[in-house]
């Protein structure tokens, strides 16, 4: 019995350390954002919504927020169809060179982000499209494509191919089979992937740093630039926005597909 006790103590000791490490920045940011003082310190001085109000007044931040949302929507709209079709193709169809295709499609994940970001900066610069907003969405979509393909292919792996054959046998033409049998079956993966694309794009920093300039700066880059100059509590208020969106995403993911889906063995 003492054996089981010591196992619990050691395991839970390490788990609690992880829990604190994972949650501490989030909790601290929320606390600090309500300060009424002029500088960030902990514990905060007093309680006020002052910095949220000041943030609302700063057009720099509200514009950056709108641009970030635009970029994230473009990224999600591109990666949803592209990633879903690619996942179906790599798992369902017998393609030649399948291993090479998989390695190729994983490139955005295996190439370091700094290098991908700078490569696309050079390419977009040569194409004279740097300085616009849509290439930022496209670039972020490319570097996160493996995540989209990966979440959909997990669902594709789980479909029984006989379902499609049954639909075809009963006379359903190909498009109808695709829309009424295949697509609903992979929906959990598509939802997870879409959510992931949006959140990753909304948070993407490094690639945005290279692909934006002072007129098209997105929110993570704006936060980074402010951290490098003066740290004021309005940054904590923006960060709370990020925390809220992450909370909504976790809640949505749990409602739509269930977080437990990630506990399955492959």
């Amino acid at each position: 019995m003492t054996d089981q006790l010591s196992k619990r103590v050691v395991l839970w000791g390490l788990v609690w350390f992880s829990i604190v490490t994972l949650s501490l920045p989030t909790v601290i940011i929320i606390g600090a954002s309500f300060t009424s003082g002029d500088i960030i310190r902990f514990p905060p001085e007093g309680f006020s919504l002052r910095w949220y109000w000041e943030l609302w007044q700063l057009s720099d931040f509200t514009n950056a927020l709108l641009r970030t949302l635009y970029v994230a929507v473009i990224c999600t709209l591109i990666s949803l169809p592209v990633g879903t079709l690619a996942a179906l193709a790599t798992v369902r169809y017998r393609l030649r060179f399948r291993r090479s295709i998989q390695v190729y499609l994983l490139l955005p994940f295996t190439i370091p982000l700094v290098v991908s970001g700078l490569s696309m900066m050079i390419l977009f610069g040569e194409m004279r499209i740097l300085g616009q907003l849509w290439p930022v969405g496209l670039g972020i979509c490319i570097i996160n494509l493996p995540f989209m393909i990966w979440s959909v292919s997990a669902s594709v792996n789980a479909i029984d191919p006989d379902l499609e054959n049954a639909a075809m046998n009963c006379g359903a033409p190909p498009v109808q089979t695709f829309l009424t049998v295949t697509l609903p079956a992979v929906m959990p993966g598509v939802i997870t992937g879409g959510l992931l694309s949006f959140i990753l794009a909304f948070n993407e920093f490094l690639v945005s740093l290279f692909l934006t300039d002072s007129r098209t700066v997105t929110l993570p880059v704006q936060i980074y630039n402010s951290i490098r100059s003066i740290i004021t509590p309005d940054l904590a208020a923006v960060s709370v926005l990020y925390i809220l969106i992450a909370l909504i995403a976790v809640w949505l993911l749990d409602r739509l597909v269930g977080l437990e889906i990630f506990l399955r063995s492959k």
């Binding site: 788990v15 501490l24 920045p25 989030t26 940011i29 936060i223 951290i227 960060s239 992450a246 977080l259």
Partner: peptide, 23 residues
Amino acid sequence: LLVTLFLPFFIGQVVRAYGWLIV
């Protein structure tokens, strides 16, 4: 445990680094 894990997963590096600056 799942929520504790996924919440920071969905928060970008810059914001988390900012949290550590305060800590």
